[in-house]
């Protein structure tokens, strides 16, 4: 309020004094200066308008449009690169999963195969061992039988010799065998 009042109060006190001024009173209302001001205003504003509309504004507008285009291009490039990187990462992940599955399958297969292998080998070895054991048993039995046969022969020989010593006359083999068999038979 004070700001508005002060000039008004001031003007009311000053203007009468100025009215008597030889220069023609309050300067903004001095019509003698109007033509000159209008002329120079037209010249300066016209110059400004031409400079702005022909040079400055198109140039500044072009700079800003160029900047916007640059930023937009850069952003588009960045988002494209990001998409590419994402796709690549996805591909890598897929490959990784595939490789994992592959490796698991291979391991499974190898495990199964080795188990079968071992089983086969073991059964072969066992069969082999059983056969060998059977053979050994057979040979033992055979040897035993043979040995027993030999014992009989030795006994016959000993009996024949003993009787020859006692009687001076060798018994026949058939009589010896018959005697031994009857003795063994009880």
């Amino acid at each position: 309020m004070r700001r508005l009042l002060t000039p008004a109060l001031f003007l009311s006190s000053v203007l009468p004094a100025l009215a008597a001024d030889a220069e023609g009173g309050f300067p903004p209302f001095n019509a003698a200066t109007f033509a000159g001001q209008l002329f120079w205003l037209a010249v300066t504003f016209g110059t400004l308008y031409v400079l702005m509309s022909r040079i400055a504004l198109p140039r500044v507008g072009a700079i800003m449009a160029e900047r916007e285009a640059t930023i937009e291009t850069a952003l588009a490039q960045a988002s494209k690169a990001q998409a590419a990187a994402e796709a690549e990462a996805q591909g890598l992940e897929l490959a990784l999963a595939k490789a994992k599955a592959n490796a698991q399958a291979i391991a499974q297969e190898a495990r199964a195969k080795s188990a079968k292998d071992i089983e086969g080998k073991r059964s072969t070895v066992e069969k082999d061992l059983a056969a060998k054991m059977a053979a050994a048993e057979a040979s033992i039995n055979e040897t035993k039988a043979k040995a027993m046969g030999n014992v009989q022969d030795i006994a016959k020989d000993a009996v024949g010799a003993m009787i020859e010593q006692l009687t001076g006359k060798a018994p026949t083999a058939a009589a010896v065998t018959k005697a031994i068999t009857s003795a063994r038979g009880e």
């Binding site: 003698a32 200066t33 033509a35 000159g36 001001q37 002329f39 120079w40 300066t44």
Partner: peptide
Amino acid sequence: YDMSFTNSA
């Protein structure tokens, strides 16, 4: 007309 170059101009 008075087209003087003034302080305003």
